[in-house]
Design a binder for these strands. Structure first.
Length: 138
DNA sequence: GCCAACGTTGGC
DNA sequence: GCCAACGTTGGC
């Protein structure tokens, strides 16, 4: 099972809204590299839910419940989205500052490609970040 | 509010 | 095909 990190500006779509909606289509990705990442997602994969701009921290975990399909908010079917379900909140949100301060996370795609909104997370990085955030589950 | 990174556009 | 101009993202 692969792991990911998805970013959202809380002003546009927040973790609280994700929890309230339960399952939510992850739309609006308009970057080819991010699209490739969306298309590589499999049902059951998990992703960190990160608040960009405001907060700048990992606030929760979501699960991919529907694999890539045409993004209804895009014209011409050129872009894709997936459906994600809220699994639970991070007991201790992991801030970008904490991530940047930790040499073990220097290779995290979130840091290396700060503008990419859908990025992969390695198994080792996932386990490490879960420990930082007090996330007990898988 | 500023700026770095990076993607896109359009002239040549 | 190159590159300057411009727009967007997102951290600070």
């Amino acid at each position: 099972m692969a792991h990911w990190l998805v970013k959202s500006e809380p002003d546009a779509f927040s973790w609280d809204q994700q929890v309230a909606h339960g399952v939510e289509p992850w739309t609006g990705v308009r970057n080819h590299q991010a699209k490739r990442n969306l298309m590589a997602m499999a049902r059951g994969d998990r992703a960190f839910f990160y608040h960009s701009n405001v907060g700048r921290e990992i606030v929760g975990v979501v699960e991919i419940v529907r694999e890539a399909y045409p993004d209804p908010t895009a014209e011409g079917g050129a872009w894709v989205c997936v459906d994600v379900r809220a699994v639970g909140p991070m007991p201790r949100p992991v801030t970008l500052a904490a991530i940047k301060a930790d040499p073990a996370l220097a290779d995290l795609a979130l840091v290396r490609q700060s503008r990419l909104s859908v990025v992969p997370v390695s198994d080792a990085q996932w386990t490490y970040l879960c420990r930082m955030g007090g996330w007990a589950g898988p």
